[in-house]
Design a protein around this nucleic acid. Structure first.
Lengths: 327, 327
DNA sequence: GGGCAGTATAGATTATTATCTATAGAATTT
DNA sequence: AAATTCTATAGATAATAATCTATACTGCCC
C-alpha cells in the first residue's frame, strides 16, 4: 500500500460512495461530476493496491473484503480528525463536535430528557437523532450508520457493548371506566378477551409482549394494529380496546386511562445504550455518555433509574485526557 | 481546518519532525532536503489553521497545544492505517504487523519467555524491544515512543492502564559459604552490616528495596554500585558482598549462591503491562496481550503467575473482529 | 431493439504539491 | 567575533492531482 498518495479527501469520497451505494449519487452529493468520482475510486484502489474495492451487483454496490476493511479504517480515521478539528479552537474536550444517535420509537419519550440538558450544557455539540422501529434500527446498526443506539431488546452483541440505563416497565391500560379497571387482580387471560391494540410487528414493545405471552403459554386473540403509541393511547381512552404499553408513554396525569392490575405485570424491560466496538466513538459521544452517567439520577424518577453506564465507560478511560505530552 | 489538503504524507513528516526534535534531522531521515520539510510544516500548519504547531526553544522543539493535539491525532491515524495495510494480504487479523515494547532491565529475563513463543506463533509480527532502566523507560513513556511497557513500579497512571501478570519477589543472596547462609532466620539489620551490592539509583529493584527499608525505618550502610544484575550476581558469588535481587535473575542452579532467610523477605512486587490509553494500540499488540493471557500458565512457573490481563483486555473487546459489514 | 440510468475511459486543462538550489537570518558553539 | 549549525524564505521546476467535457460501454425496463 502506497500511503504517500493517500489523501483524506480520497477517503471522504470513498466513504460517501459506499454510503450512497452509487457512484453517481455520491458525485451529486459531493458536487462533482461522476467521472471524477470514478477516477478517484480508481486512484484510491491503486494506492491501496489490495485488488478491487467494490463490485457492481444487481442492486447497488458491494464491498470486497479489502473494500470493507478500507471503509472501516476510513471511518475511524475521518472520525479521529473530526475530533481533532473540534479540539482546535478554545481547547474544548469533546464539548464541541457532532455525533448521531438512533432510538427505538418508545425511547423518544425519555431521551429528550437526557439530550435536552446535555445540549444545554454543551451547546456546541450537534446531535443527530434518528428514530425508527426495531427493524429499521437494526438495519442502521448493521450499516454502521450511527455512533450510539438505544435499544430495548439489544441486537446480537458480537460487535457491540451494551449498558442499561433505565427501566421500561410495560403495563396494561384500559379506559378509566372499563370494567376491568375496577378489579384489584386480573389474570392475563381476561385481558386477552378484550380487543388488544398493538404496534406493528417488529416494534420492541410488541416483541416483548409476544415473548412474555409465549413464555406463559398464551396467545393473542382479537387485535388491532395501530401505527403509533399515541394512537394506541387515544384509542384506549376512546374504548377501542385495551393495550400493553411502556409506562413512559402515559402522560403524568391520565384521567381517561387506568393502569390494570394484572398478575405478572408490569413486564420488566430496560432501555440500553449500544455502542459498536468495531468503530471509533467520537469524543462528543463519549462526553454525552459520561454526562448521562453523572446526571441520570437528577433527570429521571429514581424508580426508573438503572445505571449500568460505569461498566461501559470503563472502555473510554480517563476522560477528558486534557493536555499532556513530550517536553 | 481544511481537511481536503491533508495528506498522510504530511502527517508522516510532521510525526518524524516531532520525534526527531529537529527539522534538519527529520529531513535526513526522510531523505529530503531541509527546506522541503520546513515548507511541508508550513503547509500543514496552514491546512490545520489552528495557529503555529511548533515553537523553537533553547533545546529543540516544543509543541504548542495545537501541535500536541495534531501529533496525537496523527499517530492514531497512521497507526490505524498501518493496521489496515497489515490486513491487506491474506486476511490476517493482527497476526501480521508491528509493535514496540519497552522493558525494565529486570524484565528482560522473563519477557523472552513470552515473546519467544508469541513470535513463533505469529512470525509475521515484528516486535521491537527496548530495554532500559526505570528512568529511561519513563522518558520513553512520556514521549509516547512505544506501544507497550513493562514496569515493575508503574508510573502515574492518569493516561495509562496497568495489568500485573507476574510476581517478581526480591530475595537476599550471599555466597554459598557466607556465614549468614547457614542461619535459619536473619533480620535485615544483620544484612545491612554486610557490604550491599546495588544497581544504580532509579533502577526499579533498588527503588523497591529502598522503599522497603524506609518503611521499616532502616537505612543502608556500606554499599557498592554495579551496572548490571549479572555483575551483582557474579560479585556476590565472588564474596564482594551481599545483594537483594529479583528471584528471576538467579539461574536455575546456583551452587555458588545462597538465598538468605530474612524476616519480611521476599519483598513482593510484580511485573505489569502498561498501556497508554490516550493512544491507539496496534492490533498486533492487542493480539500479543491476548496471546499472553491465554498461555501465561504454560510458559511460567505457576508460583510466579499473577494474571490480571483479562481486566485490561476488556478494553479491547471482541477480538478478532473477523469480517463483517453492511450487505 | 430503443431508450435510460449508471459506470468507465480518454483527453485536456488547471491547480496544487513535492521537491530542489540558493540564500539569508538566528542561534549556538568555539 | 568567527565558525558552525539550524531554520526560514524565495524562486524555479517537474510531477501529480483534481477536475472537467465528451464518449463509449454496460445492464435494465418497456
Amino acid at each position: 500500500m502506497n500511503i504517500r498518495q493517500l489523501t483524506f479527501r480520497l477517503l471522504q469520497v470513498y466513504v460517501t460512495v459506499v454510503r450512497c451505494g452509487s457512484v453517481s449519487e455520491a458525485a451529486r452529493q459531493l458536487h462533482l461530476t461522476q467521472p471524477t468520482v470514478s477516477q478517484q475510486l480508481k486512484r484510491l484502489s491503486e494506492a491501496v493496491g489490495g485488488g478491487p474495492l467494490l463490485e457492481h451487483h444487481a442492486q447497488g454496490l458491494t464491498m470486497t473484503a479489502t473494500g470493507q476493511a478500507l471503509y472501516n479504517a476510513s471511518r475511524d480515521v475521518l472520525s479521529r480528525f473530526e475530533d481533532f478539528a473540534d479540539q482546535l479552537g478554545p481547547l474544548h474536550q469533546g464539548s464541541k463536535g457532532r455525533f448521531s444517535i438512533a432510538l427505538v420509537n418508545t425511547a423518544q419519550y425519555v431521551l429528550p430528557r437526557l439530550l435536552g440538558p446535555f445540549s444545554q450544557a454543551f451547546p456546541e455539540v450537534d446531535v443527530t437523532v434518528h428514530i425508527g422501529n426495531r427493524r429499521q434500527l437494526l438495519a442502521r446498526f448493521e450499516r454502521h450508520e450511527d455512533d450510539l443506539y438505544v435499544f430495548s431488546h439489544p441486537p446480537a452483541l458480537s460487535h457491540a457493548v451494551a449498558a442499561r440505563f433505565m427501566r421500561n416497565p410495560l403495563v396494561a391500560i384500559a379506559a378509566a371506566d372499563h370494567p376491568l379497571a375496577q378489579q384489584a387482580s386480573i389474570v392475563m387471560e381476561q385481558l386477552l378477551n378484550e380487543r388488544l391494540l398493538l404496534r406493528e410487528p417488529g416494534s420492541a414493545t410488541r416483541m416483548l409482549l409476544e415473548s412474555w405471552l409465549q413464555e406463559h403459554g398464551l396467545a393473542m386473540k382479537t387485535t388491532l394494529q395501530m401505527a403509533s403509541n399515541e394512537a394506541i393511547r387515544v384509542g384506549v381512552a376512546a374504548r377501542m380496546g385495551v393495550a400493553v404499553l411502556s409506562e413512559h408513554v402515559l402522560p403524568n396525569e391520565h384521567p381517561e386511562l387506568a393502569v390494570l392490575h394484572i398478575e405478572g405485570l408490569p413486564i420488566e424491560s430496560h432501555w440500553q445504550f449500544i455502542v459498536r466496538n468495531d468503530q471509533r466513538l467520537p469524543q462528543s459521544a463519549q462526553r454525552f455518555l459520561h454526562y448521562v452517567d453523572e446526571h441520570l439520577d437528577q433527570w429521571i424518577e429514581p424508580r426508573f433509574v438503572r445505571n449500568e453506564l460505569p461498566g461501559l465507560l470503563r472502555l473510554y478511560p480517563t476522560f477528558p485526557p486534557a493536555t499532556d505530552g513530550p517536553p
